[in-house]
Simulated scan of single mutants.
Amino acid sequence: MLSFILLLTVLSADFIGAEESSSKKFRDFLQEWPTPGTGPYFDTSVNSNITGLVGKTVMLHCRVKNLGNRTVSWVRHRDIHLLTVGRYTYTSDQRFEAIHSPHTEEWTLRIRYPQRKDSGIYECQISTTPPIGHPVHLTVVEPITEILGGNDLYINMGSTINLTCLVRYAPEPPPTMSWSHNSHAINFDSPRGGISLVTEKGPITTTRLLIQKAVQADSGVYTCDPSNANSANVRVHILDGEHPAAMHHGCSRSTFQSILLIFICMFFVAIRMNPT
C-alpha cells in the first residue's frame, strides 16, 4: 500500500511538472506571437532622407514602437551587409557603430568619416517573422567651390572686376577664404588700391572680390581658396574696346572661308555687271 501511494505521488509530481512546463512554453509562445495591433512598428515621422558631409560623422536614426523582446538591426542594401544587431556592431569596418540608450525607442547607426561611396539605402530591421524593415536614404556629399560666371570672365577696361566665390556642403563655414592672382596672394594694402573683399559665412559661404578701375595688369587667373574645401579658378580678360572672340580667338577657319566666298561672289557679280 505504501508503494502504491509513493507511485501516485511521483506520477502526480511528474504530471504537475509537465503541465507547468507546457504552460510556460505556451506563455512563451504567446509572448513571441504579438497580439494583433500591438506588435512592433516604426515611427515614420523620423527623417529618412539624410545628407551627410564627407569626413563628418553622420547619424542614421530609427525609432521603434512596441519592440518587446525583438531586436533591431541595421543592414546596408548595397551588399546586403549586416552592420549591427541590437547594441552590437557586426561589421569589421570600425567606422560603423550601433548607438542605443536602454529603455528608449531610438536605434541609431553612427558612421564616422563617411565617404561618397557610403551613399545609399540603409535598412532598420525588426526581428519579427518575417522581419520588417524601414529604409533610410543617405547621400554623402563633399564641399563644392564655385566661382560664378564660368571659366572665363571678360571685363571692359576701367570697369570693376566682381568675382563671387561660393562654397557649398562644407562641414563648417571655411575659417579663411583667400584669393590669389596668377599664383600670388592678393595684397589688399598694395599701392594699386581699389581692392576689397566681402565674405558672408553660413550654410553657403560667399566671398566677393572687388577690383575697381580694371587695367591690363589685372588680367590673368584668379583663384578662390577656402581653407576646408577645394579651390576654384577663373581667367579674367581685360578688353580694350575689342570683341572677346576677335581678341582672343581671331577668325576661325570657317569664318575665313565664308569671307573668301563672299569676295569671290562679289568679284563675279562685278565682272557680269561690267563685261568690258
Rank of each mutant, 00 (worst) to 15 (best):
T139K: 06
I16G: 13
F96L: 03
A229S: 09
I99P: 00
G52P: 11
N228Y: 14
D43E: 14
L8C: 13
S227M: 07
C251L: 07
S21Q: 06
G37T: 08
H134S: 04
N151I: 01
M266C: 02
R63G: 01
H248A: 04
H61E: 05
I121C: 05
N230F: 12
R192V: 05
T38K: 08
M273T: 06
G220A: 15
H249E: 05
H237P: 00
R87T: 09
T145F: 00
L83D: 13
P34K: 03
I262K: 14
I238A: 13
I264K: 06
V58T: 12
E106G: 01
I186N: 00
A229E: 00
K56F: 02
A98N: 13
A214Q: 05
V167W: 01
S227R: 02
P130H: 15
V215K: 07
G39D: 02
L7A: 08
A217E: 08
A232I: 00
S101T: 09
H134K: 14
R192M: 10
I262M: 12
S48C: 15
A98W: 11
G55Q: 12
I271Y: 03
F267M: 07
V234Y: 00
E142D: 09
F96Q: 02
W179Q: 01
V215D: 07
L8P: 08
D189G: 10
R27H: 14
S254I: 12
E19L: 06
G194R: 08
M177N: 06
D14Y: 09
D189V: 11
G55I: 05
L8W: 10
A170I: 07
S180R: 00
R253C: 07
A270F: 12
P102G: 11
A229F: 00
T128N: 10
T205L: 06
C165Y: 07
I271P: 12
I99T: 11
L166N: 12
P226R: 02
L11M: 04
H237L: 09
Y41M: 09
T139A: 07
R235V: 01
E20F: 02
I147Q: 01
S12A: 14
C165K: 01
C265V: 13
Y88T: 14
S219P: 01
V269A: 14
K117F: 03
H243Y: 09
V54D: 11
L239H: 11
P130Q: 05
E123L: 10
V215P: 02
T139N: 09
I16E: 03
G250W: 13
P226E: 11
T276Y: 04
P131T: 07
Y154T: 03
P143C: 10
C224W: 01
A246R: 14
D152I: 02
K65E: 06
S92A: 13
F263E: 14
I111R: 04
T164N: 01
I5H: 08
A270P: 00
H103L: 12
L210C: 02
S92E: 15
R63N: 11
T255R: 15
F263A: 13
R235E: 10
K24Y: 05
M1I: 09
I50H: 05
S73N: 11
P131L: 04
S196E: 08
R63M: 08
D43H: 03
